[in-house]
């Protein structure tokens, strides 16, 4: 079965850890993840500027590793990302900002990518709030 996973909270929220463990179980069960879509505060998970204390789980880093290892399509909503300070090279240039902090493995794109994924998938599950 084809899944879309929608991440709506920052990597500090328990929901974003839950989303990751769920996504790992989806692949382990032999299902497909069409796309992981990061929206609202979920876009903060894609920042490579997060620094987590050593005795804490680095969920953002684990998400990134999971995405790159499995070559997942990970789309970060561009409008939501810009207003939360998550920029790729092109956007940093466009808005003349110094920091480029979109982690490798993610791409900025529009909400159309969420709808496109829904059309291809069988199930969509959102992880937001706490």
């Amino acid at each position: 079965m084809k899944f879309v996973i929608n991440v709506l909270s920052s990597s500090n929220a328990p929901a974003t850890r839950r989303a990751l463990r769920f996504a790992q179980a989806v692949l382990a069960a032999g299902h497909e993840i069409v796309r992981v879509f990061f929206y609202q505060d979920g876009v903060l998970t894609a920042s490579n500027n997060l620094v987590v204390a050593q005795d804490q789980q680095d969920i953002a880093k684990q998400w990134q590793a999971f995405i790159t290892e499995n070559k997942l399509d990970a789309v970060v909503c561009i409008a939501a990302a810009l207003r939360r300070g998550v920029l790729d090279q092109a956007e940093a240039q466009r808005y003349q900002r110094e920091a480029v902090n979109l982690a490798d493995g993610y791409q900025l794109s529009g909400l159309g990518q969420l709808h496109d994924a829904l059309q291809q998938a069988d199930r969509c599950i959102s992880f937001g709030g706490e």
Partner: peptide, 19 residues
């Protein structure tokens, strides 16, 4: 557990997260 959670999402027709 998570595998059972995934299996449930397959078993029902849709998932509604009340975030």
């Amino acid at each position: 557990d998570y595998p059972a959670f995934v299996a449930l999402c397959v078993a029902y027709s849709r998932v509604s997260s009340w975030t």
